[in-house]
Simulated assay, not measured.
Amino acid sequence: MYTGLQHLHSYTTYLVLLGVGISFLLALAGWLGNKSFTDKNRKLSLLGLIPTHLQWVIGLILYFVSPLGMSNFSGEAMKDSTSRLYILEHPLTMIIAVVLITIGYSRAKRQLGDSRGFKSIAIFYGLALILILSRIPWNAWPNN
């Protein structure tokens, strides 16, 4: 079960990066183009929201069943940078990224007909994308 979840979590990351990246770029183009945020744009921003939440649920389960997660939590593990990444830095940063994406989407859906919807998506999804890219454990990335 652990190995399957680990692979699912790793490969779902591609969907997250693609979805958040597309949503961010479309929102940035709409914001800079001073376009009106429509229901179609709101639905397109779900490309970033849905895979991110799915990934978060998979990661949460993985955190509790993985030997690198909660069961490894100790003072000694905090001294090791790899253990600290898996125990604390990666989960905490990803939770913050999920919250930012959720806030950006929630604010934008209330701003239909206004360019501020694009601004909310661009800013919050952009910050989340930076956080996600900063805490992906690249050394454990598939195909390395």
Results as ranks from 00 to 15, higher is better:
residue 4 G to H: 07
residue 33 G to S: 08
residue 60 L to Y: 09
residue 43 K to I: 08
residue 23 S to T: 11
residue 97 A to H: 05
residue 54 L to A: 14
residue 25 L to Q: 01
residue 87 I to P: 00
residue 32 L to M: 09
residue 44 L to Q: 13
residue 30 G to Q: 03
residue 66 S to A: 13
residue 17 L to W: 00
residue 7 H to A: 13
residue 85 L to P: 00
residue 128 A to M: 11
residue 135 R to C: 12
residue 57 V to E: 05
residue 61 I to R: 06
residue 84 R to W: 05
residue 116 R to K: 15
residue 21 G to L: 00
residue 81 S to G: 01
residue 69 G to T: 08
residue 75 G to C: 00
residue 35 K to F: 02
residue 76 E to A: 07
residue 136 I to Y: 07
residue 94 M to E: 07
residue 41 N to L: 00
residue 5 L to Q: 01
residue 121 I to M: 13
residue 54 L to D: 06
residue 29 A to L: 07
residue 34 N to L: 08
residue 48 G to H: 04
residue 20 V to D: 03
residue 86 Y to F: 11
residue 113 G to T: 04
residue 60 L to A: 12
residue 16 V to N: 04
residue 13 T to Y: 06
residue 135 R to A: 13
residue 94 M to H: 09
residue 85 L to Q: 09
residue 16 V to R: 03
residue 117 G to H: 11
residue 87 I to V: 11
residue 46 L to H: 02
residue 64 F to D: 10
residue 132 I to F: 06
residue 124 F to G: 01
residue 132 I to H: 10
residue 86 Y to K: 00
residue 7 H to T: 08
residue 46 L to N: 07
residue 22 I to F: 12
residue 61 I to E: 09
residue 65 V to T: 15
residue 101 I to Y: 01
residue 122 A to E: 14
residue 62 L to F: 07
residue 119 K to N: 06
residue 35 K to W: 02
residue 121 I to L: 11
residue 106 S to L: 06
residue 89 E to P: 03
residue 59 G to C: 05
residue 108 A to P: 00
residue 11 Y to E: 15
residue 56 W to V: 05
residue 110 R to I: 05
residue 92 L to V: 11
residue 54 L to S: 04
residue 120 S to I: 09
residue 84 R to I: 01
residue 116 R to H: 13
residue 95 I to H: 04
residue 120 S to M: 10
residue 13 T to A: 14
residue 137 P to L: 14
residue 77 A to D: 01
residue 60 L to F: 09
residue 69 G to M: 11
residue 20 V to M: 03
residue 59 G to W: 07
residue 42 R to C: 08
residue 128 A to F: 07
residue 28 L to T: 02
residue 127 L to S: 09
residue 93 T to N: 14
residue 138 W to H: 05
residue 124 F to Q: 01
residue 59 G to T: 01
residue 4 G to C: 02
residue 49 L to D: 08
residue 62 L to A: 04
residue 22 I to T: 03
residue 139 N to A: 13
residue 108 A to F: 06
residue 139 N to E: 13
residue 69 G to K: 08
residue 134 S to A: 15
residue 4 G to T: 12
residue 106 S to K: 15
residue 127 L to H: 09
residue 7 H to Y: 14
residue 44 L to V: 00
residue 107 R to P: 02
residue 139 N to P: 01
residue 72 N to G: 00
residue 36 S to D: 08
residue 138 W to V: 10
residue 78 M to S: 03
residue 71 S to N: 06
residue 61 I to W: 05
residue 92 L to C: 10
residue 41 N to P: 00
residue 98 V to E: 12
residue 120 S to D: 14
residue 109 K to D: 09
residue 25 L to H: 02
residue 3 T to R: 13
residue 47 L to P: 00
residue 82 T to H: 13
residue 68 L to M: 13
residue 27 A to M: 04
residue 69 G to S: 02
residue 65 V to Y: 06
residue 103 I to S: 04
residue 62 L to P: 00
residue 77 A to I: 01
residue 42 R to A: 14
residue 42 R to S: 11
residue 81 S to H: 05
residue 93 T to I: 13
residue 107 R to D: 05
residue 4 G to Q: 08
residue 98 V to N: 07
residue 67 P to N: 15
residue 136 I to R: 05
residue 29 A to R: 14
residue 95 I to Q: 08
residue 78 M to W: 04
residue 13 T to N: 12
